[in-house]
Nucleic acid binder design. Structure first.
Length: 226
DNA sequence: GTTTACCTTGGTTCGGAATG
DNA sequence: CATTCCGAACCAAGGTAAAC
């Protein structure tokens, strides 16, 4: 497909270009990076923390840290890889905090009902919506040890090596956990085909952008997402 | 639940044949 | 002679069964 000569194709700013302009003072352009990678961070958060509220809190902290440390980003890895590493660290810190709270007061500790999808999707729902909810519910129902491996490998596309590194596991262990996670999901999703899950779009994405930019002291604009 | 050993798959490289 | 195409060989990464 060759575009007509008179119509120049839209060339989005690369991550590197955006980063340099943010560092040069165009704070608001940071919003571009947030809208690009909110989805990725959210899935990582869900993978390690298991529920939306905790994932979103970790996301906010990760974005603020990424902004504050942007000047130290040396571009040895890609920006999303660097960003995911920050998010992973946030999630692991959060988990440690939660563990301490449970240790201090294990009588009151219990799973929050939070925002899990309700069981029994109405038949009139669109298939994609039904599937998305079923898939999210199935992944959320996995034990954390399988869920984290599954999301990092299958959703975020990390290699076996990267996943093992991030979760402090051997590569063999990652492979086996992934296999078992798939078996569990296959059993639960026998009637569906894979579709998009853990979407972090529209109002939820906007909301995250507003919160983080408010903490950074910048107002959101209306940047192209690509 | 983890590790080991083996199998499969996909990508890359290289050499030889065919073609212009 | 240069280029293109094709297939064989090799390697790395990932998947799986079985043993522990």
């Amino acid at each position: 497909m060759i575009p007509p000569l008179a119509v120049m194709p839209f060339v989005p700013l690369t991550d590197s270009e955006v980063i340099h302009r943010v560092l040069a003072g165009e704070k608001k352009l940071f919003e571009l990076l947030m809208r690009r990678y909110n989805q990725r961070l959210y899935r990582t958060g869900i993978a390690l923390l298991g529920h939306p509220a905790a994932a979103e809190e970790a996301m906010q902290n990760a974005w603020v840290k990424a902004y504050e440390q942007l000047a130290q980003f040396e571009e040895r890895a890609s920006f999303p890889t660097w960003l995911t590493r920050i998010m992973l660290n946030e999630c692991l810190m959060d988990r440690r905090r939660q563990q301490r709270l449970v240790d201090l007061d294990d009588d009151t500790a219990e799973d929050a009902p939070d925002q899990r999808p309700a069981a029994g999707t109405p038949l009139q729902n669109l298939l994609n919506e039904e599937l998305r909810e079923a898939l999210e519910a199935a992944v959320e129902s996995l034990p954390e040890m399988y869920r984290s491996v599954f999301v990092l490998r299958e959703v975020e596309g990390l290699s076996v090596h990267e996943t093992a590194d991030a979760l402090h596991l051997t590569e063999a262990n990652v492979k086996v956990r992934l296999l078992r996670a798939r078996e569990r999901l296959r059993n639960q999703l026998a009637h569906f085909a894979p579709q998009q899950a853990f979407a972090y779009l529209g109002p939820r994405c906007d909301n995250m952008v507003h919160h983080v930019l408010a903490r950074l002291g910048a107002q959101p604009g209306a940047h192209n997402l690509n």
